Structures are given as structure tokens and as C-alpha cells.
Computed example of a mutant assay.
Amino acid sequence: MKQQLLLLLDGLDEVRAEIRDTCVAALNVFQQEESSEIVVTSRIKDYESLSNRLNFQSTICLKLLTLEQVHLYLDSTGFELTGLRTLIGEDRALQELTRSPLMLNIMTVAYQGVKIAALPQTDTTQLFNSYIDRMFQHRQPKLHYSKSVAIRWLVWLAQQMSQQSKTVFFIEQLQPSWLQTTVDKMTYRLGVILLGGVVC
């Protein structure tokens, strides 16, 4: 049974600052007593500001991409990205954005086949709009709802998560208290009653 689970604490930097050092100490004790393998992730600046350190076997530091790595990735995709390559060469702010693998992937999807004249200058709103449009075009045959309906519900979800101070969405954490209108709350209650009747 030993070593069959690998424990992962994703986001030490998201633990409240005042208890972060205590959390590190507790993780060290747990690791020593249980001889368990643990993976902990954290933003480097937040980790370096702690007075305690994790006593684990090794550390991996993930760095931002270099401009050379960005160009190698663009060359390897097989997509027409000449416009994006040109814009990256001219726009320093955009170069900084491409150093994040997530943002680079979003740009690649949003701007494949787009000519340089049609590309916005470091406009992240336009970038995300183009990305969303591409994703809806790509998945259109499989969708059972319109783009406007999907965006309306995603905006609602983002607002609820912001109000609840949540940064990661788990469907099991959806709560009836998030419902805003009386009709929604009544529909939820009716659904619970009907589901309970079916189960019984």
C-alpha cells in the first residue's frame, strides 16, 4: 500500500499569508513521519518570502519562455502564423505575454491565418474575443447552446466565483445560494423534490 498515492498541494502561495509558514512546517512534519512523497507548487516570490523552507528531495523552477523558444514553438505548430510572428517582433508588450505558455497557446489559436494588418496591438480584450470566437467555430457542430448563452452563463459563473473569493471552479462547490432570482430558487427546490421522489 505504501507510495501508491502522490500528494499534491497546488498553490502554496494561495494559502493565507499569515499561516503559510505554519503550513510549510506541518508539511515537513507530515513528510518526515509518513515518508510520503509530496509535490507542492508555489509562485517563487511568495515561497522565497517565507521563513520556513520545505525539506523535500528536490526543487524544480519553471521559468518563462525565451523569445527563441517562442519562435521554435510557432515554427512547430504547422499553422500559418506569419502575422503573429511579425507582430511579436514589433511589439515588446506582446513579447512579454508570449513568455507564458498559456498566453502563447491562446495567441496561436486566436491568430492562426490572420494577416498582420488585422492583428491588434497588445489588446488583450481583442485577443480573448478572437480566441473565444475561434473556440466556438471549432466546436460549433457539437454545441447544444448558442455562443451568447454560453458567454452569459460564464460571466455569471465568474461573478459568483469572484463574490465567493474562489479562483478555481469545482462543479461540486456550486451552491443554491448563488441563485439570484426567485424563479431560479423555486426551480432548484422543485428539481430537488422531484429528484428525491425519483430516488425514493
Rank of each mutant, 00 (worst) to 15 (best):
T77V: 07
T66K: 10
L74Q: 12
T82W: 00
N105L: 06
H71A: 15
T66E: 09
V70P: 00
K45T: 14
F56H: 13
Q95D: 13
I44T: 06
T59R: 11
L64P: 00
L54D: 13
L62W: 05
S58D: 06
N52C: 04
F79C: 08
I38K: 03
T98W: 00
K45F: 05
R92T: 03
T59C: 11
L94R: 01
R43W: 11
T66C: 12
C61K: 04
T41S: 03
E68K: 05
E48V: 01
G89F: 04
I88K: 01
I44M: 04
T77M: 08
L72R: 08
G89T: 07
S42P: 08
M103R: 06
E68L: 02
V109K: 10
N105P: 01
E96L: 14
D46A: 14
M107Q: 05
L67P: 11
E37K: 09
L81E: 13
T59P: 02
T82A: 12
D75F: 07
K63T: 15
M103V: 12
I38T: 04
K45N: 13
V40M: 05
G78M: 00
L97S: 06
V70K: 00
N55C: 10
T86W: 06
T66G: 15
Y47H: 10
I106L: 05
V70R: 05
N52I: 00
I44W: 10
V109T: 06
T86D: 14
R53Y: 09
V39Q: 03
Q95F: 14
S100K: 01
L102Q: 11
V39W: 10
Q57C: 05
K63L: 12
E68F: 07
C61R: 15
N52F: 01
F56Q: 13
G78A: 13
S42T: 03
E80K: 02
L65H: 01
R53L: 08
R92Q: 03
D75R: 13
Q95C: 06
T86K: 14
N55R: 05
E96I: 11
C61H: 04
V109P: 02
V109Q: 12
E96H: 12
D91T: 08
G78E: 08
I106K: 07
E68Q: 07
D91K: 00
A93C: 12
V39T: 12
N105G: 08
S49P: 03
I38C: 11
T77A: 03
F79Q: 01
T86N: 12
T41E: 02
T86L: 11
G83E: 05
F56R: 14
G78Y: 09
I38P: 00
L104K: 05
N52T: 15
L104E: 02
D91W: 04
T86R: 01
I60M: 12
M103P: 00
F79G: 09
G89P: 08
I60G: 11
S51R: 05
S49L: 06
T41I: 09
G89D: 08
L104N: 07
L65Q: 03
S42D: 06
R92W: 03
I60T: 14
R43K: 14
L72S: 12
H71S: 11
N55E: 10
V40N: 02
E48R: 14
L81Q: 06
R85N: 09
